[in-house]
Amino acid sequence: MLAVEDLAVSYGKVTAVKGISLRVGEGELVGLIGANGAGKSTTLLTLSGVLRPDRGNIVFDGKKLGRRTPESLVRDGLVLVPEGRHVFGRLTVEENLRLAAAAVRSSAGKAEDLERVFELFPILRERLRGYAGRLSGGEQQQLALARALLLRPKLLLLDEPSLGLAPLLVDRVFDTVDTLRADGATILLVEQNASQTLAIADRCYVMQAGAIQAEGTASELQSSDVVSSAYLGTVV
């Protein structure tokens, strides 16, 4: 579904991502974990077209991505849920959802899409006519996810969905991601929360200082000490 080769991104003179390669297969839930400043979000923003890479290849759904805008990538099914629960605060929950649905060209199946979203996030149905800005943090995260799902993603890029949520809600976010995967979604999940990401992901990449330090399944990574060293900064 997604193949990244030798991707490098910099902000001015600071190189944030130093030539990484990763791969996400169809139906896979792949984690990208690492401490603050490892370059995880930069990677996601580049994949979704917000940032321009210095070099490297991105192949998505069999097509090589050149200079594409985020909105055109969304139409091809590459959907990012940005970090920090971006909802349209002064629009109602319903308007937030309509907005996402408006980006989908064909009208067939939109009602079913909506039903599925309400099944996943029943609270949104109750809050339909309330302002999105009035929702709690957890509810806003659900709305942001719901909006992304209405865009019919082929690949969902999630940027730290558990950030800033109370522990119980963090569990629920991971449960939701797990449910989506069970439904057949392809997901690249960026997280600082390594243990919970390892628990649900098929495979994980461990990122440190702009480079990928390790790759493997949860059990492979847990048996080595590469994850803890990536966070604590000790030499492997």
Binding site: V50, T69, P70, E71, V74, P82, H86, V87, L99, A144
Partner: peptide
């Protein structure tokens, strides 16, 4: 609707496929 969305939050609007 799209413009009011972009008015609220531009990055989110672009992530929602809005030109």
């Amino acid at each position: 609707l799209k413009l009011r969305g972009a008015r609220e939050d531009e990055p989110a609007a672009r992530a929602a496929g809005i030109n």
